[in-house]
Design a protein around this nucleic acid. Structure first.
Length: 422
DNA sequence: TCTGGGGTCCTAGGACCC
DNA sequence: TCTGGGGTCCTAGGACCC
């Protein structure tokens, strides 16, 4: 059985990452200390909203993006919901819910396949609009960003700035977003979720107890299902109860570092900077099969799929001029268990052939005794191909600030293999 | 006949070096 | 004869996020 160990994971920033210089309390001209001002901007039901804009006849209808669409025009019965429109959420349809369950909750649900090209294009538009008003931005994915507003309010009040940001996003995209304003990223993120859609919420030390401490523990960024279970097991259901549980008691249960992180987060403390640039560390491609595949009888399909995944991965890397230092495969079995195997390349590469050879080598080392549900290939240890000789042995710079991670790691054996490639 | 696809970061243990 | 410690790389797996 796995040992249950809870640790805090520090937030690493790569060598080329640039943190904004506002991780501080900035003294004003009068000498008084000005608190930081950070915004978290979150697009409302982003994918679903883009789809409703693409097809106005779907506006106002319960709609969900996702599912496995085998043929165009037919409604899927498998797969998961990626995003549900607010109309669908009223029926209880949620992200990550199975299509089967979503249809039970809302039989008239309209299901549309994902269209990443459209979401990426819209993502660029809203981010450009925000950058014009607030130049220090941290990209947190396709539909959300942090903005460092300290020293960037241009004479506005924070709420006025938030309104201006919402207006700019709407003018650029026709879509709404919700904004949280707070003295740090942790609180800004929680705040943006408080009045969706199209809301503006402020969290600051004066309303912390009333507005933060009443929330369930799961609202804390970094507390997932596992940590929630453990907390609830201790009779801790709200963020306020974490805060009053006491630092020492938390550390006793969750370990030094994770305990400290929980304690600080529950008290609204977070000193992470807004990071405007970071290099990717891995890139991957994976696919779930339409049916379960037998490792021997369906070997031809498995091998062909792996080759295609390698082809796409190589293209991804080549397009972005990244080289991989190692290549791995991931297999999900019929019982939903996942195993992975990695192979280090002797020479960093983004060529199809080296990737393919490493991937097959890795797959050969994986214990495949059950039917396969999913197959994936991942390139990690990425280095920029142009700067590669210079950057090859640079190490990430550890941040001093805390970020939560929990791990339940069991002991494991090493399957060492160095594959000579090229 | 269940749950996609793309990421981040961390830990642990062995190898290996100094 | 007995017996280190620190650091890094590699690998497998887990938690968490969008």
């Amino acid at each position: 059985m796995d040992r249950h160990q809870w640790q805090l994971v520090s937030h690493n920033i790569g060598m080329s990452s640039q943190a904004s210089d506002t991780n501080r309390e900035s003294p004003s001209s009068t000498g008084a200390v000005m608190p930081r001002c950070v915004a978290h901007v979150d697009m409302d039901a982003f994918y679903a909203s883009v789809e409703q804009q693409k097809r106005p006849e779907l506006a106002g209808k319960p709609l969900a993006v996702g599912g496995r669409h085998h043929q165009a025009g037919t409604r899927p019965t498998r797969g998961v919901i990626t995003t549900a429109s607010y109309e669908a959420r009223r029926f209880g349809v949620r992200s990550a819910m199975s299509v089967h369950e979503a249809l039970q909750r809302c039989p008239e649900l309209v299901l549309v396949p994902v269209d990443f090209a459209a979401y990426r294009a819209m993502s660029q538009r809203f981010k450009q609009a925000l950058l014009a008003l607030a130049p220090v931005m941290e990209d947190r994915g396709i539909d959300e960003v942090y903005l460092e507003l300290t020293d960037h309010l241009a004479g506005r009040s924070a709420p006025d700035m938030a309104k201006a940001l919402q207006q700019a996003v709407f003018e650029a995209t026709g879509l709404t977003c919700s904004i949280g304003i707070a003295p740090n990223k942790l609180l800004a993120k929680i705040a943006s979720d408080m009045q969706k859609p199209a809301g503006i919420s402020l969290l600051d030390p004066s309303n912390l107890q009333q507005r933060l401490w009443t929330l369930p523990v799961r609202k804390l960024y970094g507390v997932g299902p596992r940590a929630e279970d453990r907390l609830v097991g201790l009779g801790i259901a709200t963020i306020g109860q974490i805060a009053s549980f006491g630092l020492l008691a938390l550390q006793e249960v969750f370990g030094q570092r994770y305990g400290l992180w929980l304690h600080e987060s529950a008290n609204g403390i977070d000193t992470r900077p807004v990071v405007t640039h970071s290099d990717p560390v891995s890139s991957s491609r994976e696919t779930t099969f339409d049916r379960l595949l037998h490792p021997r009888q369906d070997w031809t399909i498995i091998a062909k799929t792996l080759e295609q995944l390698c082809q796409r991965l190589a293209q991804d890397l080549q397009r972005k001029d990244w080289l991989a230092k190692s290549v791995g495969v991931k297999v999900r079995f019929d019982d939903l268990r996942i195993v992975s195997r990695d192979v280090a390349l002797r020479v960093p590469s983004n060529g199809f052939e080296p990737l393919r050879r490493a991937a097959f080598e890795a797959l050969a080392r994986a214990p495949v005794e059950r039917r396969l549900r999913l197959l994936g290939v991942k390139a990690s240890g990425l280095v920029a191909s142009i700067e590669q000789p210079v950057l090859a042995d640079q190490k990430p710079l550890a941040d001093t600030t805390a970020r939560p991670k929990c791990s339940l790691n069991g002991s494991r054996t090493r399957h060492s293999s160095q594959l000579d490639l090229l």
